[in-house]
Design a protein around this nucleic acid. Structure first.
Lengths: 214, 214
DNA sequence: CTTTGTGAACAGATTCACAGCG
DNA sequence: CGCTGTGAATCTGTTCACAAAG
């Protein structure tokens, strides 16, 4: 009774397949097989074929996958045929770094709004827009048609800001705050905690060290 | 034949347990049970107990887990009893945002070096240090005793910079570039691709939209 | 009586291996 | 023939349910 028939592990890999195919496109390759894709993303051929088969039958037996066609299919599945509108909530160091990241456009996203609650930051210009007040989130989000909110605020206010974002109707949130946020069932949240990633790496380092001290 | 006996899924959850316990500490709670931890991190009691049991028997039956003791154990397992030394490689927007992130210290990390290859950036001061040349990575890393490198450079140079980092002896890399980097078996890499996270969210949005159009 | 720690059952994801198709 | 697509086998992770411990 899984809502989607595509396993979540597969979904997490789709972006890397798209990246690999785009780079094949740049190299003027018109067809790739599952093994070539696998090598590009660091996986194996069976995994790639199984993953792609969840989306449909896009390959040709004996040949492989047409690069342009598969790119188009992946873009459709990821729902980025049209650019998705992203709002950055929190214009601190991280928020402003994300706002200025040039790579979003070519990955299917457009930053259409930046919000903060600091009066000193509100009104500050970026790319022909200005930073707006978090208090006005509802009007801002519906005017700008925001699909995804990127949460780059301090942990202490993450939940209350999330509540406001959710009330404004956003269904997808990327949370950079080092804390869990509670949302209704129909809202998807992904967590991007840099320090947690470093801690996972630190665990591996200390495993190595433990093994060395035998 | 798994090197470590702790499942990788468990390792990824350990940072959230630590965060939950630290917040319990702040609330002056001296004991927590598995259900309370589960609620704080958005999991379930059985999962929490199983995960913690991989590390040892740190609970008391009929009571729960001593918060201070478990915090200490988690910190040991994560290998952050002493701060880990982090180098930021690439002093663009993201690199400088990460360099200035105040939260690292309390999560067990210290930024001990920042590197870039742009002559305009080399020599620029930060926190009493200065940005150094990527070309000098070997000397810089051994002098500063770097444990983890955070890669915040453009995709085009990610592999060559990685090769230099690895040659300098680093065994753990957090890669923000939207491309895979190849490393020897004894080096751990984690990938933090913001646009890929957004694409996963976009997939969920388009699933919702597909379901709505039935 | 409560809550851990853990085998056993279950669910989900990966890999194998080959039938099916171009 | 070569490579995809996919059932079946395997492996990994999660959940259940209860004996063991305080």
């Amino acid at each position: 009774m899984n809502g989607s028939q595509v396993p979540s592990t597969t979904v997490r890999r789709l972006p890397s397949y798209l990246q690999a195919l785009l780079s094949a496109q740049v190299h003027r390759q018109s067809v790739v097989n599952s093994l070539q894709i696998a090598e590009m993303v660091g996986s194996n051929a069976a995994q790639v074929r199984k993953d792609l088969s969840y989306l449909g039958e896009y390959g040709t037996r004996g040949v492989g996958y047409d690069v342009d066609a598969l790119v188009a299919h992946l873009i459709r599945w990821l729902g980025i045929e049209e650019h998705r509108n992203v709002a950055i909530v929190g214009f601190g160091r991280l928020g402003s770094a994300l706002q200025g990241y040039a790579g979003f456009a070519e990955r299917g996203f457009r930053v259409v709004a930046v919000l903060d609650d600091d009066p000193d930051k509100i009104g500050r210009p970026f790319d022909g827009h200005v930073v707006q007040a978090i208090g006005d989130v509802e009007e801002i989000f519906s005017a700008a048609n925001v699909d995804i909110a990127v949460l780059a605020v301090p942990a202490a206010v993450a939940q209350s800001v999330t509540d406001a974002i959710v009330a404004a109707g956003v269904k997808a949130i990327l949370n950079f705050a080092p804390t869990r946020v509670e949302v209704p069932d129909d809202v998807v949240v992904r967590h991007a905690d840099v320090a947690a990633e470093l801690q996972v790496l630190a665990f591996h380092l200390s495993s190595l060290e433990r093994r060395a001290n035998d």
